[in-house]
Structure formats: C-alpha cells, structure tokens
Amino acid sequence: MSETPSGMSPEDVVDDAPPGSIAADVPSDAAVLAEREGMNITSRSFGRQTWDRFRRHRLALIAAIVLALLATAFIVGPWLSPYGFSERDVLNMRSGPTAEHPFGTDTIGRDLMVRTFLGGRFSLRIALIVALLTTLIGTVIGAIGGYFGGTVDTIVNQTINLFLIIPALVVLLVVGVRFAASPNSIAFLLAILLWPTIARVVRGLFLQYKEQEFVLAAKAAGARAPRIMFRHILPNTFGPIVVNATLLIGVAIILESTLSFLGVGVQPPTPTLGNLIEESKGQLDSKPSAVLIPGGFIVAITLCVNFLGDGLRDALDPTSRKG
C-alpha cells in the first residue's frame, strides 16, 4: 500500500467516513445546503437549449441558411422568371451564361435557370418525401424489432438484411422502366429501398436503451409497451434518427439524379437536377456550365444537408454540454 506524503494511508480515509449505522443522526438540512452550493438553477426550455447549441455550430448554421435560400429560390424562382420551363428562345439556343439567360440555354433554347430551379424543386421534393417515408417506416419497424426482441427481432433483422443486400440501382433500373416515372413514384420506390438504413439504426438504439434502468422504472410505474417504446425510448433516439434522415436526403438526391441521368428516373420534359445533367452531358467541352451548374447544386445540397445533420445531432442531445 503506497503512503501519501502526509503519512495517511487509504484505510484512515475510509475510517473517517461515517458508517451507515448512524444514518439517522445526520441532519438533512446540511445535505440540502451542501447540494445547493455551487448549483445554478436557471433553467432554459428544451427549444431554447437546442437553439443555443445549434447556434454554436457555425457550419451547420451556414448550411441551414444556404439550404433555406436554395429552397426559396427553387420555389419562388420559376414563378418569377419571365420564361416557362419548356418555353424555347430560338434566337438563343445553346447559349452560355448571358444577362438574359444567367445559366444559359439548352440545345433547343430553353432557359436553364428556370429549368435548374424547377429541377431543384423536384429533386428536393423527392428527397424530402424519401426522408419522411424512410424515417417513418424504419423507425416503427426498427423500434418493434429492437424492443420486443426474440422471434420478432429475428424477423425484423432478417428483413433488414434482405433489403440491404438488394442492389438498389439494379432494382430501380428494372422497376423504374415499368413505372415510368413521376417524382412521387420515384420517391416511393427510393423509400422502399432505403428504409432499412434507418430501421437498423433504430433497432440498435432500442436494443441498447431497453436495458436502461429508466425503462425498468417506467415498467415499474405501470407503463405499457407502446408508451415505453414511443414516449420513453424514442425521444432518446431522435439525434441519430435526424442525422440519418438528413444523410438520406443527400443519398436520395444523388440516387434520383443517377436514375434520371440513366434515363429511368423522372421523365422529361419535367426537369430534375439529374435530368439536366443528362441532357447536357454532350456539352461538357463546349459549354461546361450546363453540366457544372446543376452538378454544383447537387453538391451544395448534399453538403449542406450533411452539415445540418451534424449540427442537429449535437443540438438535439440534451446531455450535450456544448450549449
């Protein structure tokens, strides 16, 4: 046993501690005072705390602003534009960026700015629907599997694995040809293929949280399974769910663009960001802006969504001390 400089051995310290048998003699007011000391008791609402934490995450804040601006542009832009999305300006075909057509025109003279904004609108809409649907399906299925365990979980887990090994692109190519293809049906297809990502995360979290004592405490308080699952455990999993949902927005935009690029996505003349690249792919040498602009939007949206997810994860965790 090592001695401390003062010559006090650890046993002495233990002997100084009050043994439990004199428990009743300790005045409880002293306890109150001791615990009161150095504690600040200002409390902020959950929303306030979340905002305070989010604000500190500069990149996420910028990403949120950029996304808001992009969304506004996508929604309002086509509406303000003097051109229709399939209106042809035959005097200015294949033009690069000009004052009249800031993003240029395509091979048959349609204004690329209005088409890009409208394309962004469709792409974003598809991505949001995908994110919502996958989160809904994935959360419910993952929660049921993780919470109930046993045979239920085996079925859930094997279903998740089955969906995860399906090569998404191949299925989409095959199915996409048959169901040619409105933005909504593409979104639906993507959701069916992408929900297992969320389900796997939620299942893992439920497996972990159901062993926590607060779940036992809730059971001991007489709470039923659905209440425990969705009121007690689910809020603990919001952070990871939101992060994964935002990441899926990025994945959905890229997948949709890929499909449209391959010609089985949303069908022309409806523009999406992927469609626009596909239409202009031959002009990469002569007029790179026609490819780079929609491509740039895809990159910008995906990046912003990822930064946003990162910031939200920290902000939504009430135990995070960053606030």
Partner: peptide, 13 residues
C-alpha cells in the same frame, strides 16, 4: 432503483 444515473430518462425534465 439502484442507479439514479440511469433510472431517470435523460431526455425529459
């Protein structure tokens, strides 16, 4: 319960 650290749900007041 034994462990007050985990017996309260961390995400609720």
């Amino acid at each position: 319960f034994q462990d007050p650290m985990t017996a309260l749900n961390p995400v609720f007041t």
